[in-house]
Simulated scan of single mutants.
Amino acid sequence: MDKLLILVGQDPLISVVARKYAIWLIPTLVPYAILQSLIRYLQTQSLILPMIYSSVAALVFHVPVCWALVFKTKLGNAGAALAIGLSYWINVILLVIYVKYSSTCKKTRVSFSNIVLPSMKEFFSFAVPSAVMVCLEWWSCEIIVLLSGLLPNPQLETSVLSTCYDLSCLLVASLHYFIPYSVGAAASTRVSNALGAGCSETARVAVWAAIVLSVVEVIVACTILLGFRHVVGYAFSDVKEFVDYLDDITPLVCLLLTMDCIQAVLSGVARGSGWQHLGAYVNLGAFYLVGIPMASVLGFVLHLRGKGLWLGLNMGSIVQSFLLTLITSLTNWKKQASMAQQRIFEKRNTADETC
């Protein structure tokens, strides 16, 4: 991995650290995969409190363990990655205990059977485009960060600092993204449950409720960020040059937060409605035909440097939000509910035949 990062122009010091951190993150893939399955299982039943309690317990465990592994055992970044894996396992264990012994899950708790195998084909038809949909978006952000390391910036001493500056902007956007993403996950669950029950009007209302809630939240977040733009950089560094850079680029970050607010909710609606393949095409076109090419032109050809990269990423987000909004506004919810119920009846018939 370090050789690959160096090949695309990343600083060798950053590449070596990234390789070590990524290797120690590999064991976290197993508990993370189990955790995501448990979360979806509980979300579909609106069992939110158990997930909150287990997450709080995992956080209380994570903070001291991470500190100990990073500073006391001298593992550094490797210790941070290891702490993440341990925290995931704590979360998984607590949720497994709840699902296993809680009376709330009694009616939905089933053991593995041969009915699972025939349904795998249908599952993959939704899972693969859903994964592609998410990955295409996140990879575009990572590509922008990689490009930032290649920028010639006379105001910064090294490309390492340039990359760190843009990583900090990405961190701000990523921290906020989990809020609309969570609203989108809730919308996905509500919409899919409503469509499965044949309640098209409930699904439509859930979509609008999620959009309004997310818009109100992003207005508050952007107002706070713009209000503290002159000091927000001190959360990452006390270097005046760094603080001024974040101050200057904050409006672009706020624009990205706004677009993330819309697309995160509508992406959740798309997953809940079974439009994952449309979402994948939208993300492919928005970020890889518009966003990244525009970022490259603005950053390297027009010499706007970091601002150009972020402006290009924003253009991709704007196109993505516009296309998802167009798809959602043209949706016939009655037809979607009818199609969802038809799939349910087909699954029941298949299960009865297998039994």
Rank of each mutant, 00 (worst) to 15 (best):
S200A: 15
V65R: 02
A221M: 11
K347D: 09
F242R: 08
D2G: 06
L7Y: 12
I318H: 01
E137N: 07
S214P: 04
L284A: 07
V92T: 02
P12S: 11
N314H: 09
A206S: 15
P118C: 04
A80E: 03
I327H: 13
F61M: 00
V63N: 05
R204Q: 14
A209D: 12
F322T: 15
F61C: 00
S200Y: 07
M339T: 09
G9L: 03
R109V: 02
L7H: 10
V172H: 00
V16Q: 13
L146I: 14
W89H: 01
V191G: 06
R19G: 07
L82M: 14
G9Q: 08
A197V: 07
L69D: 01
L323D: 08
L59P: 00
T104V: 14
D352P: 00
I224C: 08
M315C: 15
M315E: 05
Y281T: 12
T44Q: 08
C164W: 04
S338P: 03
W139S: 08
W89F: 11
Q10L: 10
Y32V: 01
M259C: 15
K106C: 08
V218A: 04
Q43T: 03
V160H: 09
L25K: 10
E142K: 10
Y88G: 00
K74W: 06
C355G: 08
Y101I: 08
S119D: 12
S168Q: 09
I224K: 05
L82E: 07
V207T: 09
V65L: 13
M259V: 08
V96S: 13
S125C: 10
L136P: 04
S168H: 08
I52N: 02
S200L: 07
C105F: 08
A187C: 15
V319Q: 09
Y234L: 09
A197Q: 10
Y281G: 07
L289A: 15
C141E: 11
F242E: 05
Y245C: 11
I14C: 07
V215H: 09
A78D: 07
S321A: 14
K240V: 08
L82T: 04
Y288F: 14
Y88T: 01
A337N: 03
G306A: 13
C169P: 01
L47T: 05
R204V: 03
L323Y: 11
H230M: 04
S174K: 03
A210E: 00
S329R: 13
A203T: 02
A295C: 04
D11L: 02
V297I: 15
E137T: 09
S55G: 01
V63I: 15
K100W: 12
D260R: 06
